[in-house]
């Protein structure tokens, strides 16, 4: 039974091969068919092009977010003191600065970010997964050059509006729809002494989950 099935399959395969050999030379496809084919190729290419461009940021393992997330190894701020360390973590960082990276998760609790650095320029940006800046500021925008920031999700922002917390006065409140953020801190430190100072300042800086809000 198997043999006969095999034989008939073989015959049909051979038959089709014979068909192909015997078929006379076909005439060239009409111009209409050709242009329809080209149009189909172009349309498909266009769709693939757009989809690829839109998907690259999601599937690139070497985008800014992924690199920063890999480099932010510590709880709290991970300092990048030397230009080489900065370079290894993220390309395009200013060599005259000391940088700090911190993963900020605000799904369950607000996050508190603080820094005391009054005498030199510094700036901070919060990035979401797609590398978009959610919020950024510099030492002039902050009060007295000191940073006191609370990053909250939409639910906590709502709670804050309903029952303002007394101990949050003077804090910068940032609301974000993204549960996971990365904070990047830049401290201007052109001289070796400045680098040491910036390193101390980052070590003393805070980046941690805040205690949940108390009900008034």
């Amino acid at each position: 039974m198997f043999v006969s099935a095999y034989r008939s399959a073989l015959e049909s395969a051979l038959g089709s091969a014979l068909d192909r050999v015997i078929v006379p030379v076909r005439k060239m496809p009409a111009a209409g068919t050709l242009s329809a084919g080209l149009l189909a190729i172009l349309l498909l290419a266009g769709i693939i092009h757009i989809v690829t461009i839109l998907l690259v940021p999601h599937y690139s393992g070497a985008d800014g977010w992924s690199r920063a997330a890999t480099a932010a190894v510590k709880e709290g701020w991970t300092p990048l003191v030397s230009p080489d360390a900065s370079q290894a973590a993220l390309p395009g960082l200013d060599p005259l600065f000391v940088h700090g990276l911190c993963k900020v998760a605000i799904r369950d609790a607000p996050a508190i970010l603080s820094l005391e650095a009054a005498n030199k320029f510094w700036s901070l940006a919060l990035y979401n997964r797609s590398g978009t800046v959610v919020f950024s500021l510099n030492d002039r925008t902050a009060v007295d050059g000191a940073l006191e920031m609370l990053v909250v999700n939409a639910l906590d922002a709502e709670r804050l509006k309903e029952s303002p917390q007394a101990d949050l006065e003077g804090m910068i409140i940032v609301e974000s729809a993204n549960a996971d953020l990365i904070a990047v801190l830049h401290l201007y430190a052109p001289e070796p002494a400045d680098r040491l100072e910036a390193q101390t300042q980052i070590a003393a800086a805070q980046c941690a989950p805040a205690p949940a809000f108390t009900e008034n």
């Binding site: 940006a125 797609s130 800046v133 510099n138």
Partner: peptide
């Protein structure tokens, strides 16, 4: 790094691996 960035610039940035400065920080 802003929501206004076009898709090509986003894809390019995802490849170079830079995080652009925020509007409150500066410009390169």
């Amino acid at each position: 790094g802003t929501p206004d960035a076009d898709p090509y610039s986003r894809a390019r940035l995802a490849r170079t691996g830079e995080l652009p400065l925020g509007s409150g920080e500066g410009l390169a």
